[in-house]
Design a protein around this nucleic acid. Structure first.
Lengths: 146, 146
DNA sequence: GGGAAAAGTGGGAATAATTCGCAAAACGTG
DNA sequence: CACGTTTTGCGAATTATTCCCACTTTTCCC
């Protein structure tokens, strides 16, 4: 199970170290990367990606507009990346741009997948949504018993 | 049952002593730490964290906005921490920043979990919310039998 | 109040992780 | 085929983390 929030930097060739704690959790040295929702990238272990992309495809025929959007936005940009011997991945140019990555990145482990954000983009995302987060938490207060 | 309010200090490496009274209440030497609501950190015994995070995740797919907020804000920052031989935990940099911890911390035992606040942040939280606290107390007066 | 024990704090050395920079290899182009 | 450009791989340097030990302060008991 992948968790934790990390802060690594892209080198000038667009390579990003995958945090050791995350590397330790995945089997093999391959990750699938694609565009995420909100300005971030999603990284999946290959088997998780298969599950997700299969279920997206089966829920969706190319004859409906929304399905085409999902497929183009999530499925199409996906690429397999190898983790090199130094524990790094090279992020494709187009994905780097779509998430606005420059240098400092925030890496989030969300149990079954990983998000990569530009640091300042992530900070502004959190701060602009803090109110909505608190509302969501209030709502969950009724549902989540703890 | 974890209770009590304690005042310990971070050392310059970001380590915080877990009060002995609290250590005595938990089994094992592991705690899960994450960002709390309001400017504090939450610490859970692993089994309590599992209960909470499972119930949060079950209410959540990454394809809805609120779910993503909860995941990014609560689930993602969570890490397991070991209590070292001196009874301390090392608080990750990013969490330290998110709660604005500098040196003096307040540690609150809230039955099943623990909160860590920056001392001055906690004081100002209490004083700015005293009125609301009194209102909440009025409301609960009808519900809580004592 | 004195002494012993426990709890909390601080610092140094060893280890590990990340980042940087160079060199080799691959690729594309003229 | 040779040149220039880009990509990849590797090793060194820097930064961060972990481990261990010692000191100070507090607490509790006598």
């Amino acid at each position: 199970m992948i968790t934790g929030q990390y802060h690594n930097a892209l080198d000038e060739k667009g390579r990003l170290s995958v945090p050791q704690r995350i590397r330790a959790e995945i089997t093999g040295n391959v990750l699938v990367i694609t565009r995420g929702i909100d300005s971030c990238l999603w990284l999946f272990p290959p088997e998780e990606w298969k599950t997700l992309s299969d279920s997206l495809m089966s829920a969706a025929s190319p004859f409906t507009k929304k399905a085409r959007l999902m497929q183009r936005r999530i499925i199409a940009p996906a690429v397999e990346l190898e983790i090199d011997k130094s524990g790094r991945i090279t992020i494709p140019q187009s994905l780097k741009e779509s998430a606005g990555l420059t240098k400092d990145c925030v890496i989030l482990g969300i149990k079954k997948y990983i998000e990569v954000w530009d640091e300042s983009a992530y900070e502004s995302y959190l701060s602009t949504n803090e109110d909505e987060f608190q509302e969501a938490a209030e709502e969950l207060g009724g549902l989540v018993s703890f």
